[in-house]
């Protein structure tokens, strides 16, 4: 366990050092975060016109959802997307062989090897938004703690669904667009799940668990999530994570390596 922790520090240290070559990116990613948040606030604000309350949400409540979304989107850019892209590249160029031969759990290596600091501005923006909304709503520390755990579980679901899709690269080889598709679908999590028509709600809860990524953790933050929703969240994150591990091992049986 300690070995893994130490290796992880090295991985991220090396990644950050490499990215530091592009320091101007920091300015760009700050601008991107500000623009994204501004645009999203404007769009959500449009929904609150004429006294309308989308899905019965108050403005600060809708901000918690937007905040959790921004946070997860930052996580996606920092960790999930770079590693998924690397996995595809490994399969395509045949270097996955080397990864598999390392004395380390391959899924761990493939999921955490890369770290791109440029998504951290989104993480910071999301945290700031959640903190502001929580302050407006007067969230209790206990709810904040539950919410924090719930957001982490939502992140696990996002990781697991993305990794499941990325694993398909073993068969289809070139799947660079997973990230674009994933972020397009996560986009649905920008708005409260109750603001969608019934068909969408069913799809985003049962088929593609976007509701469990943003709306449920945001409800937990506000102290409004029922126990069964939290149990459901834990179950979905456990199930998707387990599925991603099993599916990865299943997929490896079909990996033919580049040299054979």
């Amino acid at each position: 366990m300690r070995r893994y922790g130490k290796t992880l520090c090295r991985f991220w240290g090396v990644s950050v050092a490499a990215e530091m070559e592009y320091r101007a990116n920091f300015v760009i990613s700050c601008l991107t975060t500000v623009l994204t948040l501004g645009g999203a606030l404007f769009t959500v604000g449009l929904l609150f016109q004429n006294g309308h309350t989308p899905g019965g949400y108050s403005w600060p409540a809708a901000l918690t959802v937007l905040g959790v979304y921004t946070l997860l989107d930052g996580l996606q850019q920092t960790l999930l997307a770079p590693n998924r892209a690397a996995l595809t590249e490994h399969v395509r160029s045949g270097t996955l062989d080397f990864v598999l031969l390392k004395p380390m759990h391959a899924q761990f290596w493939l999921s955490l090897r890369r770290f791109s600091p440029w998504g951290l501005t989104d993480v910071a923006g999301g945290l700031a938004l959640v903190a502001y909304a929580g302050w407006c709503l007067g969230v209790s520390p206990r709810a904040a703690l539950t919410g924090g755990v719930a957001v982490l579980l939502g992140g696990v679901i996002l990781y697991a669904v993305g990794f499941l899709l990325a694993t398909l690269t073993i068969w289809f080889v070139k799947l660079y667009n997973i990230t674009i598709a994933m972020s397009a679908l996560l986009e649905a999590g920008r708005y409260p799940i109750q603001a969608y028509p019934a068909v969408y709600r069913a799809f985003f809860t049962a088929v593609l668990p976007v509701a469990f990524m943003t709306s449920v953790p945001a409800a937990a933050l506000r102290g409004e999530a029922g126990v069964w929703w939290l149990v459901g969240l834990a179950a979905v994150s456990g199930a998707t994570f387990g599925a991603s591990c099993l599916f990865w091992r299943f997929a490896l049986r079909f990996y033919t390596s580049a040299s054979s």
Partner: peptide, 27 residues
């Protein structure tokens, strides 16, 4: 066509207007 599977992901990636369709028609 060599990497057809990727096209499916491209198509999924264009679904943003359909998500907004849900939000706005409900609103």
């Amino acid at each position: 066509l060599t990497y057809r599977a990727e096209i499916l992901l491209w198509a999924v990636a264009t679904c943003l207007p359909l998500i907004m369709l849900g939000v706005w028609s409900q609103a």
